[in-house]
Amino acid sequence: MYNNFDYQNCIEKIKSALYDIYEHQEIIIGEEEDENKKGEQVEKYIKVKDLAVKLLEDINNLYSVDNVDNVTNNEIEPTIVQESKQDELLKNSEISNDTNVEDDKEEEKEENVDLDDLPKFYLDNRNGEKPNFAYVPNSIFTKLKDNAILDLFNNKFYKQDDDKKRGIIVREDQFMKLSLSRDRQEGVLKEAKEFRILEAKKSRKRLQEID
């Protein structure tokens, strides 16, 4: 019975539906003007994501009766993969070419917004010229600060040593949880960016009305 039923296909369909929900929620959060309501929506969103991860893991456990691999008791197997041994251990794999880098240069022009009562979160020191920052409400500032969110738009990391990379082998469901933890942090960062854009538009509108 386990051999014939394609539970993985079911999981993929669930994931696809969940991603649609996540995308829509991020739009809703971005459009919410009330700070408190925005924060509440983010909390609910995170809760749904956590439940989704649990659901997918439970489904995997339900069907993975033959999954007697090197990971036991739900723990990460601390297998160290040194770079030089990769070819022996691993299949050929293709890196996805699916990239989607947002260009926020247009929005940078809207930095001149007078919002002195809101904290500034510095995203990066863009090209060493001037800082790229976002005005954010206190609730989002706290989340960003606590999570020490990295700037996602400058994607180069400079390796300072010649030491070999250290790796760990994880199960697919564990990998997904790790990915979602980053997605959760990015959701907050994206929210901050959308807030900044909206505030800039409001300010520009007010200036136009004065003129």
Binding site: D69, K159, D161, I168
Partner: peptide, 22 residues
């Protein structure tokens, strides 16, 4: 078996440039 390899490096922030070490 479908398991995935992940790598972890330490991040150092110097002069605004993102640097990593093992």
């Amino acid at each position: 078996n479908g398991d995935i390899v992940i790598y972890i490096s330490k991040l150092i922030d110097e002069d605004g440039q993102k640097k990593i070490i093992e």
